[in-house]
Write a protein that binds this DNA or RNA. Structure first.
Lengths: 366, 366
DNA sequence: ACCATGTTCTGAACCGTTACGGTTTGTTCA
DNA sequence: TGAACAAACCGTAACGGTTCAGAACATGGT
């Protein structure tokens, strides 16, 4: 495990060739096409390389010549913490990483803070393509990626012209969930959602703000809820929606607190993510509310902890989402037509949803 | 958002220069040193670039010339799923990503499956340095990284000659935890641990296997437990240790099942990770064992879900660990001496540890 | 003895950029 | 009027490889 001695200047393929008295081509072949030279010579090359502390052809130079970076970039303009703290996002990341591993290419997390207009990093990233995940619709980083002459696939976002896309059918899934809640008899509901736009608003979200949301996923889910509840005769204007910029369990709890303080009569809390729902669950416990007897709580994503908590939620195959994105990107190139992959979702009814108390009262009423 | 028309052949800095009738240097300066040319010319360059669909200097060529890849590599030889499923590992990843973001460099996940001897990806990765996390001591990928003429910092691993290292004081932290358990009066304990070596062993781990473990963290924790319990008069040979290759909550549950089936009299289950402990908790519930009245369960890492579950555990600053590794790597270069950063840990006593039942019986006994 | 066929190795042309050390032009000031 | 100097731009030489079309030599068949 001794570190090879470093000469004054790093050894290069050329210096190695000179030392051996062979051409650079031959040394290159020793690494890339073993069948192009005699085994003895190859052995001699490799031995000399070790002696000189040469670890093989420089990756960057090789990339320049072959026009392959050997890595795909992941654009997460979101606050990085979000991407890592939400198990659903981590699932996508994992799936993508798996696809990359299969293909033997690296996965580069391209930096770019939200609100940070500095897209230089996008331009500087040596990658063969981009996967764009969870960025606002009008993000400058996304535009910068599109500028680059490499393929791009977007995840969980409306399709942009001619680009590949992968995502679940958010609307349909949300409609299923909403119908479940409606079917149980709930008419007084509240909603907890994630950040809708790049500006922080840890408060109730107006109808305008909901419809103007820059985050497509949230917009789609809210719109689907609205449609379903209005079809059931519930005016959406009467439905309180509380937004949280950050995305921790605690944020879900505080959002639930804010909503329940102002609207104590709601019988169901629909959360646009499991993380928020877990927080709501905690807050319900703190208030002594029984779930689901006093309050129905639903989530979205189907993360492990939610399953363990018995949460009613929509499960989406996050791992597959990431994998599909990776395969799409790595399989691009020759393809001309753009591809769209829509993934199946599944409503998982747990122990946190049930008929509303008011319904029961109605049952026993006059 | 229209994709710029792609000419037959991608525009390059040179073709742009030709089109404009200026030198390549000037075009390069337009992007990299705006002060080196007149604002008008710069504007003209940028406009022509847009017209030709030139998105700026090629990152790879630039990297070759400047000798800076603009990315650091993360070596996770572990099964990728482990890295993404364990919140503690994700925390390290997040910290590292944050440090990279601060520095404006990318973070490349370098592929390399466990047991896979193909280290080509390590050689092919265009990075300015490596962070090595959670790989077995003798991993070929690690060796390959060391070969490369770039700095390397290792996380959670014994220091190798002259390399930077960051990690918690695993031994001290484990001793604290063990003393807590010993102090409560437990003498009949069992241990659930993560994979000890690259070969799968979902079973009891012999003393030899424990001491021969290739994963340093696990080895250190087990050794510390052994020391502490033997100091308390408990023969380590009598302590059952169950190992699990995979690392999901379910694995923790099955490990607990296996251990309790064979050793029903243990009063405490010490788990080397929170994930395993959460599984043990679930299994205890399934058996109708009250925690901690009938069984004490402890974890390690201090992940969010553990806190929520009230688990007694050792909290380690995973985020800081990743950040520190990133800073160390990015700050290297001029430095000659290697640095070692040891992070503080904290014993967090929750509601899953208490005195053993036998102790209570003893209390009321003759 | 000759040609066809391998095998093994080489020379030179790129890949697209930036570093370095200029040259040219215009302005200022004694 | 011309020396001094800054601003604006340029030419050349890398950076470290891969690739392709051959050259040189040996082998085998006819």
């Amino acid at each position: 495990m001794n570190r090879p001695m470093r000469s004054r200047r790093q050894a290069t393929l050329a210096s190695l060739a000179a030392e051996l008295g062979v051409s650079r081509t031959t040394v290159s072949n020793a690494y890339n096409r073993p069948d192009q030279l005699s085994p003895e010579l190859r052995k001699r090359v490799l031995e000399t390389a070790k002696r000189l502390g040469y670890a093989g052809p420089d990756p960057v130079a090789r990339s320049l010549r072959t026009r392959k970076a050997g890595a795909v970039g992941l654009l997460l303009t979101e606050n990085l913490s979000y991407a890592f703290r939400d198990p659903a996002a981590v699932g996508v990341l994992e799936g993508l990483a798996l696809a990359c591993e299969d293909a033997g290419v690296g996965l580069t997390l391209v930096p770019g803070s939200p609100g940070n207009e500095d897209v230089a990093a996008v331009h500087r990233a040596g990658v063969d393509g981009f996967v764009v995940y969870s960025v606002p619709d009008d993000d400058p980083h996304l535009e910068a990626a599109l500028q680059r002459p490499v393929p791009t696939v977007i995840v969980d976002q409306p399709q942009l012209d001619g680009m590949d896309r992968v995502g679940p059918d958010d609307e349909a899934a949300t409609v299923d969930l909403a119908n479940h809640v409606v079917g149980l008899g709930h008419r007084q509901v509240g909603v907890l959602c994630m950040r809708l736009s790049s500006d922080r608003n840890d408060d109730f979200a107006s109808l305008y703000r909901q419809q103007d949301a820059h985050y497509h996923v949230q917009r789609a889910r809210l719109a689907a809820l609205q449609r379903t509840f209005e079809a059931a005769g519930v005016s959406w204007e009467s439905v309180p929606v509380v937004e949280r910029f950050d995305h921790h369990v605690d944020d879900g709890a505080s959002a639930a607190r804010q909503l329940l303080d102002k609207h104590p009569r709601v019988t169901a809390l629909i959360c646009t993510s499991d993380i928020l729902a877990l927080g709501a669950l905690a807050e319900a416990g703190r208030r002594g509310l029984r779930v689901p007897a006093d309050l129905t709580i639903t989530g979205f994503d189907g993360i492990g902890e939610a399953t363990r908590a018995g949460l009613t939620t929509v499960h989406q195959p996050v791992l597959e989402k990431g994998k599909a994105a990776g395969k799409l990107l790595l399989g691009a190139g020759d393809r001309v037509a753009s591809k769209v992959i829509t993934l199946p979702t599944e409503l998982r009814v747990g122990t946190t949803s049930g008929p509303p108390r008011t319904a029961e009262q109605h049952w026993f009423g006059p």
